[in-house]
Amino acid sequence: MVTNKFDYIRAESVDDAITLMVKHGMDAKLLAGGHSLIPAMKLRLNAPGILIDIRKIQELRYIKKDGNKLVIGAGATHHDVATSELAHQTYSMLPEAADLIGDQQVRNMGTIGGSLAHADPAADWPGVMIAAGASVHLKGPDGERSVPAEDFFTGFYMTDLQENELLTAISIPLPPEGTRSSYQKFMQPASRFAIVGAAAAVTVKGGKIERVKVGINGLADAAFAAGNIEKALVGKEPTEANIDAAVESTGADAMVMADHFASEEYRLHLAKVYAKRALMAATQ
């Protein structure tokens, strides 16, 4: 199994990568961990003319605290996040989700930035980032900008990334005290992507839910924030009955995907089950 021919350039820095993207245009693709791109290229489902390798750009690989934010460089691998004490302290769902991606070999190579930019609707990070209220940092020839994760995923493999822009980092505001989180995933048994994944971050104060954020991936063509759940739970006690009632409308407006592992009806049902499991795990 071999790919089409292509040229390969290793970018030395973020700016170098951007310059290379500008230079090579649509024919180029960024290569980070390569775990979505290379299999597709081997099957010849994709044949870029040039790969710009950003995996070894050291300035992209970090996990650090910056003021009241946790910042994860786009080049951090899933394994880096899975084993990061900082990430764990911020939201336990971060290492939890990282650990459920692919397998160890994939986690050793695959990067968080690559996964987010790829925007596979069944990938795990998008839901988690939405629940964490994260922002995605982008850099292009015209400078830097950041986009809330909630707005970043626009469709099937589609994001707000513009031509020649590079995803550089993800920043996550440190959660208020009393916040707990969980990511729960129902796996497609063959690929281990999510059939449905639900991430929940819940802040409980004085026995009441003060703040709650739920991100759902796998259900629709892009990960989304389950606003209805948030609305239904804020101000309520984190009881199973309240959670049951809140998840009932999960995915009501979503264009639900279907495949031979899960029909629309079943997927929708799973979204409720997993939203509940994530909320329960984050509150009970």
Binding site: P121, A122, G155, F156, Y157, M158, Q188, S191, F193, A220, D221, M255, M257, A258, D259, H260, F261
Partner: peptide, 10 residues
């Protein structure tokens, strides 16, 4: 297969 319905939706 995994991606078809998503492709169609988008």
């Amino acid at each position: 297969q995994r991606v078809l319905s998503g492709v169609a939706n988008t």
